[in-house]
Design a binder for these strands. Structure first.
Length: 637
RNA sequence: GCUGCCGUAGCUCAGUGGUAGAGCACUCCCUUGGUAAGGGAGAGGUCGUGAGUUCAAUCCUCACCGGCAGCACCA
């Protein structure tokens, strides 16, 4: 006798082993029909798993969140089965469930074409209709290797070879398809349903290593029902409308062109936005005790040899060709320049911490495939700063930086900022003792402040560990924005010192930090975050004065002048067009405020104020409207 | 950088082995109209670049440049 405890606390006793499927049937026929898998003492298992001892058991149905993951994993297997049926020469590799869907990596001599996706998807639907039973089999490792090698599946064999010898492994069989898999799976292919869609085709390196051959990856999405699938596809469409590359074009903010891949041509409106961000940051930094500097963009090679960039970063750097044959590099980072400013003259411990900010434009030769609108460019402006401090001050300075970043992000409405901690990379300078100390400082700063963080092993800068502050774009891609790095290596290399209370020279610690990170990237994130509808203080064109008839032209210009005098960026629209047309056009252009004036307003010295997104207007006295808007246009405290 | 796809008017896109088309935007004319597109006319492209095949290339082939998706990279 043994007892199975169900989630509602009820207990069922059995005197012989019972499978998940039988258990579900015992509980009720409805549950038997919808059962997909079982959770036994916290572990997810196939429905066919036999229970023969006391256990906590729950039956998984499509209503459970985890069911979706199983379903997506099954979708990957069904896709692999379809591919093997249609293209038998293809080798299968791996196919996991991922956020919103699944993928499977295939190896085959001729690449898939987009049209193939339709065929594969159609075959998948057939396999679902066949409702093939999905059966788990336990195999001896070596037999499994031999089996897959005999099938010509060398990737599968390679995966199994990396499993320790003597261990049994599980294979899942459905119809004529058999795959190495840890499971669990749904009971049959019919359970997958048809709420799936193959989305895109892409290359992916075998085992994620660019030295390996490239496989063909097919991505798909899968959901428990059609409604969810449709909602997801619709959400993707909506996200596309927020894409900063699209909005940048529509709103005339910036452009790119062939002659300067990965470098932005900022148009007047985009540049206004950019400058607003700089002005805001300048004020925040000033309040936080920073001074501002500016250092050369082009400096001699020797400086970069000293800094270590020549050895560790050269392939990402631009160089100049000049008559004097001296080798200059265009700066990829601001730190060496900042150090020169610190080193100029003798610094005392009384000067520390010294916080030197620089809106420095840097150039990095990024891999062509990495370029992505404003998010990943080859020339960008950092809101950089280097904080020179003593070892004792390091921790507090780190906390101040983290506090400042989070506070600033809040002003833009970013509440869920993810923080990642990256420790020492393989390619680095400096001793392990120093790295221990630096990594400790960053971690304890976060822990003191109670922030949760993720961990990126080996992803630090070559001179020190770092924190990354990650924001997500409209399409769901994550981008590192703010960063904080602690460094005792560059100060060593450049022999940076200060005179301490003991009259001796000591080595300061250097913090590298950027809050927006790259102004270009942050601007891109903001465009998507606000879907182009910027708050008044950021909007490049804050208001348009639109006339109803030309009788109001003179008054409209007066209104415009009053708004400009109050510091607002605005335009007058006196065109010979109907007010409907003007309202539509400026709404589409996402101008936050429209001040409509006709004969009535001109006589009464009022304006009809219409805000973006609303369809009502408010009649205000001119002075009142100007004062209100000027107040709203001030940047956040 | 790697794999695949793509590159036609300012923008979004259609199209053909015999030197190109739509909508929007633009210019001009009519219209002065109260809150999301009033009407008419006009102008605008060496079809990404270079080579090749062909009597003939925007269309076929190759290379290069650039873009998109993913992978790898992201100090």
């Amino acid at each position: 006798m043994f007892a199975i405890t169900l989630p509602d606390g009820s207990v069922r006793s059995y005197d012989k082993p019972v499978s998940g499927r039988e258990l579900a049937a015992d509980i009720g026929p409805g549950l038997a029909r919808s059962a997909l898998a079982v959770r036994i003492d916290g572990t997810l298992r196939d429905l066919a798993t036999v229970i023969d001892r006391d256990a906590q058991v729950s039956i998984l149905t499509p209503r459970d969140a985890e069911a979706l993951e199983l379903l997506r994993h099954d979708a990957a297997h069904v896709m692999a089965e379809a591919v093997k049926e249609l293209y038998p020469e293809t080798q299968v590799t791996i196919g996991p469930a991922i956020e919103n869907g699944f993928y499977y990596d295939f190896a085959r001599p001729t690449p898939f074409q987009p049209e193939d996706l339709e065929r594969i998807e159609a075959r998948m639907r057939e396999i679902v209709d066949r409702d093939e039973e999905i059966v788990c089999e336990t195999w001896d490792r070596d037999e499994a290797i031999a089996f897959f090698l005999a099938q010509g599946e060398k990737y599968k064999a390679e995966i199994i070879e990396s499993i320790p010898a003597g261990q049994n492994i599980t294979l899942y069989r459905q119809g004529g398809f058999i795959d190495l898999c840890r499971g669990p799976h749904l009971p049959s292919t019919g359970r997958l349903g048809k709420a799936f869609k193959l989305m895109k085709l892409a290359g992916a390196y075998w085992r994620g290593d660019s030295r390996n051959e490239m496989l063909q990856r097919i991505y798909g999405t899968a959901w428990t029902d059609e409604k969810q699938l449709k909602a997801y596809l619709q959400q993707l469409e909506e996200a596309e409308k927020r894409d900063h590359r699209r909005l940048g074009k529509e709103m005339d903010l910036f452009h790119f062109q062939e002659e300067a891949p990965g470098a932005v041509f900022w148009h007047p409106k985009g540049w206004t936005l950019f400058q607003r961000l700089i002005a805001y940051m300048r004020r925040r930094q000033h309040e936080a005790g920073y001074v501002e500097i500016s250092t050369p963009e082009v400096m001699d090679r020797q400086l970069w040899v000293t800094s270590g960039h020549w050895d560790t970063f050269r392939e990402h750097m631009y160089f100049t060709q000049t008559e004097d044959e001296r080798v200059y590099a265009i700066k990829p980072m601001n730190c060496p320049g900042g150090i020169q400013v610190f080193k100029h003259g003798i610094k005392s411990y009384r000067d520390l911490p010294l916080r030197m900010a620089e809106f420095g434009k840097v150039h990095r030769y990024e891999p062509s495939g990495a370029l992505h609108g404003l998010m990943r460019v080859r020339a960008f402006t950092q809101d950089d700063a280097h904080i020179f401090c003593t070892l004792d001050q390091m921790q507090e300075e780190c906390q101040k930086v983290v506090g400042l970043i989070m506070d600033i992000y809040r002003d833009f409405g970013f509440e869920d900022v993810r923080i990642k901690f990256s420790d020492r990379p393989a390619k680095r300078i400096g001793s392990d003792e120093v790295w221990d100390r630096l990594e400790g400082a960053l971690k304890s700063a976060l822990e003191h402040m109670g922030y949760e963080y993720g961990y990126n092993p080996g992803e630090g800068a070559f001179y020190g560990p770092k924190l990354e502050f990650v924001l997500r774009d409209a399409i769901g891609r994550d981008w590192q924005c703010g960063t904080l790095q602690v460094d005792m290596n560059l100060t060593e290399r450049f022999d940076v010192t200060y005179v301490a209370e003991d009259g001796q020279r000591h080595r300061p610690v250097m913090l590298h930090r950027a809050l927006f990170g790259s102004l270009e990237r942050f601007t891109g994130i903001l465009i998507e975050h606000y879907a182009g509808r910027f708050p008044l203080w950021l909007a490049p064109l804050q208001a348009v004065v639109a006339t109803i008839t030309s009788d109001a032209d003179a008054y409209a210009l007066e209104v415009l002048a009053a708004l400009k005098a109050a510091g607002l960026d605005c335009e007058a629209d006196l065109r010979n067009e109907k007010i409907n047309y003007k309202v539509r056009e400026h709404s589409v252009a996402k101008v936050p405020v429209m001040l409509v004036v006709g004969r009535r307003e001109a006589e009464e010295r009022t304006v009809a104020l219409r805000r973006l997104g609303g369809n009502t207007q408010e009649i205000l006295a001119l002075e009142e409207a100007v004062a209100t808007l000027a107040g709203e246009a001030a940047s956040p405290a």
